[in-house]
Simulated scan of single mutants.
Amino acid sequence: MDRRQLLARLAATAVALALPGFGHAQAFPSKPVRLVVPQAGGTGNDVLARALAEKLSRAWQQPVVVENRPGANGRWRSPMCSASPPTATRCSSPACRT
């Protein structure tokens, strides 16, 4: 390996190590979070989602709202969450996946 190749590799390594310091991601979540549960209120999944929402709200420093949407055996959940407006972040309850 000659001197030119060594310098090129050292420069490429220096640039690769410096690049992560320049990127700044937006803090997640930057807006309120809605946790969608496909069962009625008071069910086991609702209780679990509310306990999770409380802990996530403290950890993320953002409000986490549990939204109960019973019916259609949970099939409405995916289209509703994918078509949600950009005013809030929506999460589907992982315990309720069909």
Score class of each variant (00 low, 15 high):
residue 66 V to S: 04
residue 77 R to V: 10
residue 48 L to N: 01
residue 57 S to Y: 06
residue 44 G to C: 05
residue 79 P to R: 15
residue 68 N to S: 04
residue 52 L to Y: 11
residue 74 G to T: 03
residue 72 A to R: 05
residue 50 R to P: 06
residue 75 R to P: 00
residue 85 P to W: 08
residue 45 N to M: 14
residue 82 S to F: 14
residue 81 C to S: 08
residue 69 R to Y: 03
residue 81 C to L: 15
residue 67 E to W: 04
residue 61 Q to Y: 05
residue 42 G to H: 08
residue 46 D to Y: 09
residue 48 L to V: 08
residue 42 G to I: 09
residue 72 A to L: 10
residue 79 P to T: 14
residue 70 P to D: 15
residue 51 A to Y: 08
residue 48 L to G: 02
residue 45 N to Q: 11
residue 42 G to P: 08
residue 73 N to K: 08
residue 56 L to C: 09
residue 72 A to F: 11
residue 78 S to P: 00
residue 78 S to Y: 12
residue 45 N to H: 11
residue 82 S to T: 14
residue 74 G to A: 09
residue 50 R to F: 13
residue 54 E to M: 13
residue 68 N to A: 04
residue 78 S to F: 12
residue 58 R to H: 10
residue 80 M to C: 09
residue 77 R to K: 02
residue 43 T to N: 07
residue 43 T to E: 12
residue 65 V to M: 06
residue 79 P to S: 14
residue 81 C to E: 09
residue 84 S to I: 03
residue 51 A to P: 01
residue 84 S to R: 15
residue 79 P to L: 15
residue 52 L to S: 12
residue 68 N to R: 07
residue 73 N to W: 05
residue 67 E to L: 11
residue 62 Q to A: 03
residue 58 R to V: 00
residue 81 C to F: 05
residue 78 S to M: 13
residue 48 L to S: 08
residue 85 P to Y: 06
residue 84 S to E: 10
residue 44 G to D: 12
residue 57 S to I: 05
residue 45 N to T: 04
residue 56 L to V: 03
residue 75 R to S: 13
residue 47 V to F: 15
residue 52 L to D: 06
residue 64 V to Q: 01
residue 41 G to Q: 11
residue 66 V to H: 03
residue 57 S to F: 04
residue 80 M to I: 04
residue 63 P to V: 04
residue 61 Q to K: 12
residue 73 N to F: 11
residue 48 L to R: 02
residue 58 R to D: 02
residue 47 V to M: 15
residue 50 R to M: 12
residue 71 G to V: 11
residue 58 R to S: 07
residue 64 V to W: 02
residue 73 N to V: 01
residue 83 A to C: 11
residue 65 V to Y: 07
residue 60 W to D: 00
residue 43 T to H: 14
residue 41 G to K: 10
residue 69 R to M: 10
residue 51 A to M: 14
residue 83 A to L: 15
residue 59 A to G: 02
residue 46 D to W: 12
residue 84 S to G: 03
residue 56 L to T: 01
residue 50 R to N: 08
residue 56 L to A: 09
residue 71 G to S: 12
residue 75 R to A: 14
residue 82 S to P: 00
residue 74 G to S: 06
residue 70 P to V: 07
residue 72 A to M: 09
residue 80 M to H: 10
residue 45 N to I: 11
residue 46 D to F: 09
residue 59 A to M: 05
residue 65 V to C: 00
residue 85 P to D: 12
residue 54 E to Y: 00
residue 58 R to C: 02
residue 64 V to M: 08
residue 45 N to P: 00
residue 62 Q to E: 06
residue 52 L to C: 06
residue 46 D to V: 10
residue 46 D to G: 02
residue 76 W to P: 00
residue 67 E to A: 02
residue 77 R to C: 05
residue 75 R to G: 01
residue 58 R to W: 00
residue 49 A to Q: 03
residue 49 A to I: 03
residue 68 N to V: 00
residue 60 W to T: 00
residue 72 A to V: 03
residue 48 L to H: 05
residue 83 A to V: 05
residue 71 G to R: 13
residue 81 C to A: 12
residue 47 V to T: 15
residue 70 P to E: 14
residue 42 G to R: 03
residue 72 A to H: 07
residue 46 D to C: 09
residue 62 Q to W: 10
residue 78 S to I: 12
residue 56 L to D: 01
residue 52 L to V: 10
